[in-house]
């Protein structure tokens, strides 16, 4: 094989050393630029990510604020509702009380009237009974009994 010819060793190795030395220097010179670009890209991406993170946390803060104000508004509304309910209930209770009192007064007066009517009826019943007794006695005996006697008899 031509590869194993010892006469081709030296020219190849000499040229290889020269070429590879230059290549190494080229690579050494080129790589820092590559690293710089990669680094700056990483920096830009990192900064963008940080910015996005900041915007996200700001949005989260706004949401928290909004939720807090919503909660306070809700609480205030609930309090107002409770107050209104209580006021209405108190008013209703007061009105009920006055109506109750009115009713009681009416009932009492009515009862009094009933009582009076009954007493009157009672009284008139006695006079009617006395009269009837007097009549009956007069018819039976032919004489008019003493009204006092009749009253005592009826009352008994």
């Amino acid at each position: 094989m031509p590869q194993f010819d010892p006469h081709v060793a030296v020219p190849q190795i000499v040229w290889l050393i020269a070429v590879f030395a230059i290549l190494y220097l080229i690579v050494r010179a080129a790589l820092p630029k590559v690293e710089r670009v990669v680094g700056s890209r990483a920096g830009v991406i990192g900064a963008d990510l940080n910015e996005a993170e900041a915007a996200k946390s700001a949005a989260a803060a706004v949401i928290t604020d909004y939720e807090a104000s919503l909660a306070t508004a809700r609480a205030a509304a609930a309090k107002l509702a409770v107050e209104a309910k209580e006021a209405t209930a108190a008013e209703t209770a007061a009105r009920l009380k006055t109506i109750d009192a009115d009713l009681a007064a009416h009932t009492a007066s009515a009862m009094a009237r009933v009582e009076a009517a009954r007493a009157e009826a009672h009284a008139s019943l006695r006079s009617v009974a006395e009269e009837a007794t007097t009549e009956i006695v007069e018819r039976l005996t032919g004489r008019r009994p003493d009204p006092a006697e009749v009253a005592a008899a009826v009352a008994a």
């Binding site: 081709v8 030296v10 020219p11 190849q12 000499v14 040229w15 290889l16 070429v19 230059i22 290549l23």
Partner: peptide, 15 residues
């Protein structure tokens, strides 16, 4: 022997 050979040529082309 530092002759410029076809191998040298292709090393340069690679470079």
């Amino acid at each position: 022997d530092v002759s410029f050979t076809n191998a040298s040529l292709f090393m340069l082309i690679t470079l």
